[in-house]
């Protein structure tokens, strides 16, 4: 069963086709990798799915519903969450506040409730706080909850970003280069973490990544983009041996990393 279905999607900036006639599906609980050289249109695909860009044409079907034209916050509420290439935390807010902003989607106490400190507000607030703290605990960030986000070390900032994305309660999680800036052992730890959250939160994951050790280890299927077009699709093994992929993307230097 597919959770997300992208059909004939195209997007242009001026005369440049950033994504052209792209179709793919993501099945439930699958981890699908998107790879491709720089400028291949990977992040543009994420921006299209999350409603930041409007496609020229094509459909994006999430759980049977076409989400093209919806606003980003509406798409998030339907159950798609995302992280960015560079962690985009609310730097001046505490770790806990960062997560609580995302839990607020499912919050139903009004402004008046919160000003008058009604029972409903206190109850709701403690419920959300508990949920946020539980998430932080899972990511090993509980002891840091009152720190200002920008003071965390880089690796923990990345984890916090994933925790915050999960706090919106997504079914589909889009990770944009989660291993960027990490060394080998850190990326392998990340691989474990990603498989762990997939199970715990019943997630379907779409992943952009340059680190081949991450992609090859974790993805069940991979699609390869080049100049906005899909040039290959298949299991990591199939993709690795596809001559078009090797020509367009892997090249000689990267081969060593794969082995």
């Amino acid at each position: 069963m597919d959770v997300l279905k992208v059909k004939n999607l195209s997007c242009a900036f001026g005369g440049l086709m950033a994504v052209s006639d792209l179709s793919f599906e993501v099945n439930k609980n699958e981890i699908l990798g998107i790879i491709g050289p720089n400028g291949a249109g990977k992040t543009t695909v994420f921006n299209l799915i999350t409603g930041f860009y409007l496609p020229l044409k094509g459909d994006i079907i999430f759980k049977g519903k076409n989400i093209v034209g919806l606003k980003p916050y509406q798409i998030t509420r339907l159950g798609i969450a995302r992280t960015f290439q560079n962690p985009r935390l609310f730097k001046k807010l505490t770790v806990l506040e960062n997560v609580m902003i995302a839990t607020h989607i499912n919050y139903d106490a009004s402004l008046l409730d919160s000003l008058l400190l009604t029972k409903r507000y206190l109850l709701e607030e403690s419920k959300q706080r508990e949920k946020a703290e539980e998430l932080l605990d899972f990511f090993g960030l509980y002891r840091r909850k009152d720190e200002i986000a920008e003071n965390l070390p880089y690796g923990e900032q990345r984890k916090l970003e994933i925790a915050r994305a999960l706090a919106t309660g997504p079914e589909l999680l889009l990770l944009d280069e989660p291993a960027a800036g990490m060394n080998l052992s850190e990326s392998l730890e990340l691989v474990n973490l990603i498989s762990l959250i997939r199970e715990k939160f019943d997630l379907t994951i779409l992943l952009i990544e340059h680190h081949m050790e991450v992609v090859m280890n974790i993805c069940e299927r991979i699609i390869v983009l080049d100049f906005g077009m899909k040039i290959a699709e298949g299991t990591p093994e199939e993709v690795k041996n596809n001559p078009r992929v090797i020509e367009a993307y892997l090249g000689k230097e990267v081969k060593g990393v794969i082995h």
Partner: peptide, 13 residues
């Protein structure tokens, strides 16, 4: 702090 990210977390800006 970050309008785009806020939208991505379900906030109606």
């Amino acid at each position: 702090q970050d309008r785009e990210m806020a939208q991505m977390l379900g906030i109606n800006i």
